[in-house]
């Protein structure tokens, strides 16, 4: 009987996998260890796809792990007495079934999300870049096109790390890198794109809420990777214009600013 206890013990250990696994995912949102607040127009699609896959994989996870548990619980040698194991080499029908069902599901999943992917990475809005982001070790250099709307003219506005964009408008960012690979990651805007030296990569999104959020570098770019921190400020059109104006005036200063303004 001691053997049977061992079997029960190990079965329960394996039962703990689906139970605790599902538990962790169930508790995580309530302790705020979950998808960060989404403030982009396309983020909902990503989130819903995430939840969809989570549900799908969750079901498969629970079913397979429960089967595993059930089999080792039930077919423990100690529980089977003198009975021999079933002598079976497989089942053609079963193989066909469990090949076709995942195949169909996977294909569906792949096709289902193609449109979302195209929206986020392929159907670029037709407009001039709102801002050019040049990543370098270890900061984000920003260049706003200035009043004429064109980059590469004397009225460009140069800034660093502090990205501002207007709310509820299409934003097109021209992403570049000066030195190594970086990745432009806005967790709250569900946007990530590597910056590759020698390439101009467009990144677009539309923010739906004002606020300040983190801009993270997500591709290893050297020893200072962790400190390559930027900030995105989403603000109303008026605030944004006023901010641009103030920054531009600062850049064109011909007299020193009073000390208290620098500090």
């Amino acid at each position: 009987m001691r053997n049977r206890l061992a079997g029960i013990f190990w079965s329960i250990l394996f039962l703990a996998v689906p139970v605790l696994g599902v538990g962790v995912f169930a508790i995580a949102p309530s302790i705020d260890v979950w998808l960060p607040k989404d403030v982009s127009s396309h983020g909902k699609e990503i989130d819903s796809l995430f939840y969809f896959i989570l549900a799908l994989t969750g079901i498969v996870f629970i079913v397979t792990e429960m089967l595993l548990f059930w089999f080792i619980w039930k077919y423990d040698a100690a529980a089977r007495g003198d009975e021999k194991a079933t002598y079976i080499h497989g089942s053609h029908t079963l193989e066909v079934i469990w090949t076709i069902i995942p195949a169909v599901t996977m294909l569906f999943l792949a096709i289902y999300q193609m449109n979302a992917w195209a929206d986020m990475k392929m159907r670029r809005p037709v407009m001039k870049p709102t801002v050019e982001v040049v990543a370098r070790q270890f900061e984000w250099r920003l260049r706003y096109p200035g009043p004429d709307g064109d980059l590469g003219t004397p009225d460009d506005l140069f800034l660093v790390n502090d990205l501002h964009v207007p709310v509820d408008e299409d934003i097109l960012i021209q992403l570049k890198s000066m030195d190594v690979l970086h990745s432009f990651f806005l967790p709250n805007l569900r946007m990530k794109q590597d910056a590759v030296p020698g390439m101009k990569i467009p990144v677009w999104f539309k923010a739906t809420e004002t606020g300040q959020y983190d801009l993270v570098c997500a591709e290893l770019c050297g020893w200072g990777h962790y400190k390559m921190k930027g900030r995105i400020t989403i603000e109303s059109r008026e605030d944004y214009d006023a901010w641009l104006e103030a920054k531009y005036r600062e850049q064109e200063a011909t007299q020193p600013e009073p000390m208290d303004e620098i500090l």
Binding site: I46, L49, I53, L109, A116, K121
Partner: peptide, 10 residues
């Protein structure tokens, strides 16, 4: 899933 990968990549 590419769109989800945008978020969870790296």
């Amino acid at each position: 899933a590419t769109p989800v990968d945008i978020f969870i990549h790296d």
